[in-house]
Computed example of a mutant assay.
Amino acid sequence: MAENNRTETARDNDDKDLIEGMIPKGTAQTGTSGGALARDVGSQADMERLEDPDGTTRATKQDDINADVAVPSDRRGSNG
């Protein structure tokens, strides 16, 4: 079976070495930015699992704001 032309083009134009060479070795951080957010949501999930073992916890806008990943909206409600 022949490969997709886009796959072949991607391999021919691979920039991995160039991109990795731009970051000095040992300075790159893995994972997502906002590590505090993941830790905080994980802690919330642990606490909620005590009461509901099958429950699910997701990051909310307020969690993002608390972790300095987002800012509050400056939009006002319809009551002004």
Rank of each mutant, 00 (worst) to 15 (best):
I23D: 12
G34N: 00
T60A: 05
G21K: 02
E8Q: 13
Q29M: 07
D63E: 00
E51V: 11
A36K: 12
D52G: 04
A28S: 05
D64L: 05
Q62L: 12
E51I: 10
G55C: 12
G77Y: 06
M1D: 06
L18H: 06
D40E: 08
N66L: 00
I19D: 01
Q29T: 01
Q29S: 00
R49S: 15
N5M: 09
D46L: 15
T27W: 02
I19Q: 08
G35R: 00
P24Y: 06
P53Q: 08
G26K: 02
D46N: 13
S43M: 15
A45T: 12
P53A: 09
S43Q: 15
V71L: 15
G80C: 05
L37A: 01
M1A: 14
T57R: 03
D15C: 09
A36C: 13
G42K: 10
G26H: 02
N13V: 07
M22K: 04
Q44F: 01
R39F: 11
P24V: 05
N66M: 01
T32L: 05
V69M: 04
R39L: 12
A70H: 03
A10T: 13
D52C: 08
D64P: 00
V69C: 01
I65D: 06
T30Y: 05
G35D: 04
I65R: 00
M1T: 08
K16Q: 09
D54R: 09
D14N: 12
I65Q: 04
N66F: 05
A2E: 14
S33G: 10
L18I: 07
D12I: 07
D15E: 06
R76I: 12
A10E: 11
S73N: 03
I19Y: 03
D14S: 14
L50G: 14
V69N: 06
G31V: 01
G21M: 02
A2C: 11
L50M: 04
K25W: 11
G55P: 07
N5Y: 07
G55H: 10
Q62Y: 11
V41W: 02
D68H: 09
T32A: 07
K61C: 02
R39V: 09
N5P: 08
M47R: 12
E8F: 13
P53C: 02
